[in-house]
Computed example of a mutant assay.
Amino acid sequence: MSSARSVLIVGGGTSGNSLAVLLRRAGVEVDLVEVSSDWNVHGSGITLQGNALRVLREVGVWERIRERGFGFDALGMIAPDGTVLHVAEDLRTGGDDLPATLGMRRPELQRVLIEAVRASGARVRLGCSVESLEQDGDGVDVRLTDGTSGRYDLVVAADGLNSATRAAIGVPDEPEPTGMGIWRVTAPRPAGVERTDLAYGGPAYIAGYCPTGEDSLYAYLVEPARDRAAVPPESHAEEMRRLAAGYGGHWTEIRDSITDSSQVNYTWFHRLLVEGPWHRGRVVLVGDAAHACPPTLAQGAAMSLEDALVLAELLTTHDAWDDALLTRYRDRRVPRVRMVVENSVRLGAWLMEGARDADAPGLIGRTMAALAERP
Rank of each mutant, 00 (worst) to 15 (best):
A79C: 02
R68N: 07
P99G: 05
L98W: 08
D96K: 07
G71N: 09
F72Q: 03
L98G: 04
L91K: 05
L91Q: 11
D73N: 15
V87W: 03
D97T: 12
F70I: 01
D73I: 02
L98I: 06
T93S: 15
P99N: 06
V87R: 15
G69R: 00
G76R: 13
G94V: 06
P80V: 07
A100Q: 08
G94Y: 11
A79L: 09
R92S: 08
G82H: 09
G76Q: 12
L102R: 01
G95P: 10
R68V: 04
R92T: 05
G76M: 08
V87T: 15
E89H: 08
T93W: 06
T93F: 11
H86F: 09
L75P: 00
L102P: 00
L102Y: 04
V87Y: 01
D90K: 14
D96M: 07
D73M: 05
A79D: 12
A74R: 14
P99Q: 10
F70L: 06
A88K: 08
I78C: 10
L98M: 08
F72E: 02
P99A: 10
F70Y: 15
A88E: 14
G94R: 08
D96G: 14
R68D: 08
G76S: 14
G76L: 07
L102F: 06
I78Y: 04
L91G: 01
E89I: 00
V84N: 02
G95F: 13
T83S: 13
A74Q: 13
T83M: 10
P80A: 10
A74W: 07
G82W: 10
D97W: 04
V87F: 03
M77P: 00
